[in-house]
Design a protein around this nucleic acid. Structure first.
Lengths: 135, 135
DNA sequence: CTTCCGGTTTAGACTGTGTCTAAAAACTGA
DNA sequence: TCAGTTTTTAGACACAGTCTAAACCGGAAG
């Protein structure tokens, strides 16, 4: 039961047909619990094989996030990063370094959610703790 | 006591020397409580006079947010928008339309904040309620 | 009044991130 | 094998934002 088999099963469960490119991308993405941008991922995958194009990386990441395999999030620098931890959890963003980390301690909201605009349904609630380096 | 005087005083209190461009930009920004991106603002100001360049709009918005006159925030589409309401308050983001609105009902966090990474200080906590259009 | 000088504005080139398109390649089922 | 569909690809494109070097402006000094 290698990591590859594990990931292949994950993709199959999400209804995503397996291709070699998707396998490689997923492998990088799930290997460590971290937040990767499309270009960082392209760099990593590209250093393994020269055979994966930029468009494929972007397409695949979008597909994965649509299927709920990863969580897409955007912070201050305007870059999209993909989090392989799909459980709802808050993030910590360092506005000086741009570093984004998970907050493992659960942060709950006190009280009920506000009434949503008519015609809309809740997707999720993002909580981002913004910090700065102290001088 | 016109709106212009009001805004001029606001800038002065923040230690920002007054210029005609800054006055116009601030005027648009504070006129209605809304969330404007740099390009939208450029469009609005540009329709009044042809005399304000893109670089100035970007510079001015950055200056204003550094001085605490507006709050800069980034959501899913990767665009920066500027909120003239600087009090901490949650936002509602429609992932289908890209629309960003204020949530006036205060949402508090239950429990204490997590311990921050060493060497950092809290700036603020962003809460974004993500919704989608129902089918 | 003229000159100087710092801060401000400007046009336009540039960068980085993400999207689109049309064609090639790789599957799939008959 | 063949046709039809899905996937991948390279490269052009779009957009938001930054950078740079020059022009501009207003006040202080001479």
């Amino acid at each position: 039961m290698t990591l590859h088999h594990d990931i292949a099963r994950k993709l199959a469960e999400a209804g995503i047909p397996l291709t070699s490119q998707r396998l490689l991308i997923a492998c990088e993405l799930f290997a460590e619990h971290c937040h990767l941008s499309a270009d960082e991922l392209l760099l990593r995958v590209g250093s393994l094989t020269p055979d994966i194009s930029r468009a494929t990386v972007y397409n695949t990441l979008k597909l994965f996030s649509q299927k709920g395999l990863v969580q897409e999030l955007v912070v201050d620098n305007g870059k999209r990063v993909y989090d392989s931890n799909t459980a709802p959890h808050p993030h910590c963003y360092n506005a000086d370094t741009g570093e984004l980390t998970d907050v493992h301690q659960p942060l709950q909201l006190a009280g009920p959610l506000p009434e949503l605009p008519p015609g809309t349904a809740l997707e999720r609630v993002d909580i981002i703790v913004r910090v700065r380096n102290v001088a």
